[in-house]
Design a binder for these strands. Structure first.
Length: 480
DNA sequence: AAAAAAC
């Protein structure tokens, strides 16, 4: 559906068109008209579904509608605080949403958007909170800090948006969110986004929302239709490294996001890859915020080809040129796998999500397959086949939608064109391991001409790699 | 046993 039928101000429709979007996504089509009525909303939408615009556009609509009030508000010399407050779990997400607000709000005269997140100096934030403000995007901790010191005023908030509510609860923000919500007028509109509304999130919704409308666009069992998933079994860390290097030097590799399980592994792996000549940096919560910002900027500007990150990057990061997501270390929760792979295949592009697993990871692989009710097809790369037999995997329990969607059995493998699925062998048994070089996939082309180990030719490296320490667990001395 | 987030 087109944006101009959603009831949005032409200034917003124009900004959306300027940004290159023609059609609204499902979550936008369904939630924007509801949001414009002022109703409370519970929205479950998968990552990359255009979620941010679905709450930023109605927020901007409200800002536009209130333009007349602003002169009055500014005159009085009183701190009014924002009209719209958005809470997000991570700092990067907050800044990304702020950027989107700037883009969609470019034709909104005098729009003021501010972010309040941890890890950055206070004075600029305090100044921003004091000035006239339309939209405030914040992580809970720092905002609560400002509330306690009286620097943040939320008594004129009209719209409260909770993005990634399930994640914020996972991170222990329940009390912070409740306290912040207590500072916001009860007459507000509240919009809550979450992958699920079961358990704690549902209870929080009950406490914060009034007669909410529900918009269910996607569940975790839905396929990312434009993301091809693959599994490579590796004998050991050495083998995993060789597979990784192969993937990173594929011709189709535009930019890769490589996930590790720990901060230490992220630094370590980025350091090794830099030594190999990759334009790489790491990203994790243990890094100073300034450097986190620079790294993300390096990824966006495409100075970086490879980003090695912890799950801080699992949600929200929206960089359309990420062609590969590689799970070098598995996530701790199956749910996080779904968020990780959603970092590729964005803005209508195709993406490849490759999981490198050792035998000890078989349990997690099984849980992921169970969670998504899909199996991840196991593949091999010529010259890099695992020497030990693959773990025996059992098919995930097929639930309703799984069968409903593909009556013939099997899942689409890449894109939507017929005949691309692996219809006859939907499960990753040893027999089901398909040849790696499958010419039907855009990611499968002729071998790069190298069968093992890392590339030796030095290429351009990115950023510093200070503070690197080899992890004790890695005594196998791969590579060199 | 991880990561994230306030100082």
């Amino acid at each position: 559906m087109s944006f101009d039928t959603l009831g949005l101000n032409p200034a917003l429709v124009k900004a959306v068109a300027d940004a290159g979007y023609t059609a609204a996504t499902e979550v936008q089509t369904r939630s924007i008209p509801l949001a414009l009525t002022g109703a409370d909303l519970m929205v479950s939408a998968s990552t990359g579904s255009g979620k941010t615009a679905s709450f930023i556009l109605p927020a901007l609509e409200r800002v536009l509608a209130a333009r007349g009030d602003n002169a009055k508000r500014r005159e009085k010399g009183v701190i009014y605080g924002p009209r719209v407050l958005v809470l997000t779990p991570t700092r990067e997400l907050a800044m990304q949403i702020a950027k989107a607000a700037g883009i969609y709000g470019r034709h909104v005269p005098g729009l003021r958007v501010a972010t309040v997140v941890g890890g950055v100096p206070y004075p600029a934030q305090i100044a921003a909170l004091r000035g006239p403000l339309d939209i405030l995007i914040s992580t809970p901790g720092r905002l609560l800090d400002h509330l306690q010191t009286g620097k943040a005023v939320l008594e004129n908030v009209e719209v409260l948006v909770l993005d990634e509510a399930d994640r914020m609860l996972d991170m222990g923000f329940i009390d912070d969110i409740t306290t912040i919500a207590d500072h916001v007028p009860a007459t507000r509109q509240t919009v809550m986004y979450s992958a699920t509304f079961a358990g704690h999130v549902g209870r929080l919704a009950q406490n914060l929302l009034r007669d909410p409308q529900r918009v269910d666009v996607a569940s975790h069992t839905d396929t990312h239709e434009n993301i091809e998933q693959r599994l490579h079994w590796a004998d050991n860390a050495n083998h995993k490294n060789a597979l990784l290097d192969h993937l990173l030097t594929e011709r189709e590799m535009e930019q890769a996001l490589v996930f590790t399980s720990t901060q230490r592994d992220a630094d370590w792996l980025a350091d090794r890859l830099a030594d190999m000549g990759h334009a790489v940096a790491s990203l994790h919560g243990g890094m100073p915020q300034g450097r986190r910002n620079r790294v993300l900027q390096g990824l966006r500007s495409r100075q970086l080809k490879v980003l090695v990150a912890t799950d801080v990057a699992a949600r929200g990061i929206d960089v359309p040129t990420i062609s590969h997501v590689i799970n070098y270390g598995l996530p701790m929760k199956a749910e996080d796998y779904v968020h990780r792979i959603g970092r590729t295949g964005r803005a209508g592009r195709n993406g490849l999500a490759v999981t490198l697993a050792e035998r000890m990871d078989a349990g997690m692989i099984r849980r992921i397959q169970q969670f998504t009710t899909q199996s991840i097809p196991a593949k091999t790369i010529v010259g890099l086949e695992p020497k030990s037999p693959e773990p025996k995997m059992f098919p995930p329990r097929a639930e309703g939608r799984f069968d409903d969607r593909r009556p013939g059995g099997g899942r689409p493998s890449f894109g939507k064109a017929p005949g691309r699925g692996f219809a006859s062998k939907p499960f990753a048994t040893r027999d089901g391991a398909a040849p790696a070089r499958d010419a039907r996939s855009p990611f499968d082309r002729a071998p790069a001409g190298r069968s093992e180990g890392f590339a030796k030719a030095p290429r351009k490296a990115f950023g510093d790699k200070g503070g690197f320490k080899a992890p004790r667990a890695r005594s196998d001395g791969y590579g060199r």
